[in-house]
């Protein structure tokens, strides 16, 4: 996931459309736009629209009924708990990692950056598998955990661990390029003027990276709440206990309760839309404040 972001603001296309040398004939332009938009509508817009249409197929009453079910509410609660633990942990880690990597020189820096990105290139199923091998009944710590009556796999701690794993790089990889670009002059000035490390971090660094921070956190949160594969492996699918929202969608769907499955799915789709809305707003604000925060 190299550069998820791009520059916001203005209308950069004007630069190309105003010059004869970089302008295509109208038929070329509109054919390209037409084909692109048809592809876009077919593969992105229709799946999004279908979620809401299917959710409301049997009317609002069925929709509301599916959402206020105790199993759905407990799935919402577990999803909030998992994201509520995973996101702050990865936020603290992300700031620490970016501080070490962006503000200091040391050997093996590129290697460390690559290792932080590792969870992005590992299949979510493997993310679940590794924790089963560590903490499952037949895993490394399985017998010890059993003796001490601690449950990690098929319980909430396993779900949290899997969520932390898949969302691991989000904050760090937004902040590292941003803090590298900003350099360390402002922090050094603060320290020379007598501020201690925490004060420098709090009053100089964090205000400078706020947009990148929000950006990383909302993407991290969206993934944390929506993760399916990794969580599915460690959850055990115990209704009302270890089901997150995406797993609850699967259960309802496999029981042919399509309206209910799509109703719950529509909540997650709304979350995705809100995430994209905030993301676009952050990019816009970052571009306006003259910082190049949101783009990496």
């Amino acid at each position: 996931m190299a550069a998820i972001s791009h520059r916001a603001g203005g209308d950069p296309a004007a630069r190309f459309e105003s010059r004869a040398a970089t302008r295509e004939a109208p038929w070329v332009k509109w054919t390209l736009i037409g084909v692109s938009l048809a592809f876009f509508a077919l593969f992105l817009l229709m799946p999004l629209a279908a979620v809401f249409v299917e959710a409301l197929r049997k009317g609002w009453e069925t929709y509301i009924a599916a959402i206020v079910l105790p199993d759905t509410l407990s799935a919402i609660k577990l999803t909030l708990i998992a994201a509520g633990i995973a996101v702050p942990l990865n936020l603290v880690f992300g700031v620490a990692a970016a501080w070490a990597i962006a503000k200091f020189e040391f050997r093996g820096k590129h290697f460390l950056t690559a290792l932080i990105d590792l969870p992005f290139s590992v299949s979510p199923v493997i993310a679940g598998l590794v924790y089963v091998l560590m903490f499952g009944a037949h895993g490394w710590f399985g017998p010890w955990l059993y003796e001490h009556d601690i449950k990690i796999i098929f319980a909430v701690p396993g779900i949290v661990l899997a969520t932390v794993f898949v969302t691991f790089p989000f904050v760090a990889r937004e902040l590292i390029p941003l803090m590298q670009a900003q350099g360390r002059d402002e922090e050094e000035a603060a320290v020379v003027l007598g501020a201690n490390g925490w004060r420098t971090l709090w009053h100089v660094t964090l205000p400078n990276i706020r947009w990148g921070l929000i950006y990383g956190v909302i993407l991290c949160n969206a993934r944390a709440m929506g993760e399916f594969g990794a969580v599915s492996v460690v959850s055990g699918h115990i209704r009302g206990e270890t089901n997150t929202l995406p797993l609850h969608v699967e259960i309802l769907y496999n029981e042919y309760q399509f309206a209910g499955a799509f109703a719950v799915a529509s909540l997650l789709a709304l979350l995705a839309l809100v995430t994209l809305g905030i993301k676009t707003w952050v990019e816009y604000r970052a571009a306006r404040t003259g910082q190049d925060d949101a783009s990496s």
Partner: peptide
Amino acid sequence: LVRYRFPGKRLIDALVDLPFALPTAV
């Protein structure tokens, strides 16, 4: 998205990231 001006462009640009944000099960 880079070269042309057309209606709805900003919305489409924002929605390109939908697969990143939409849970895979959905």
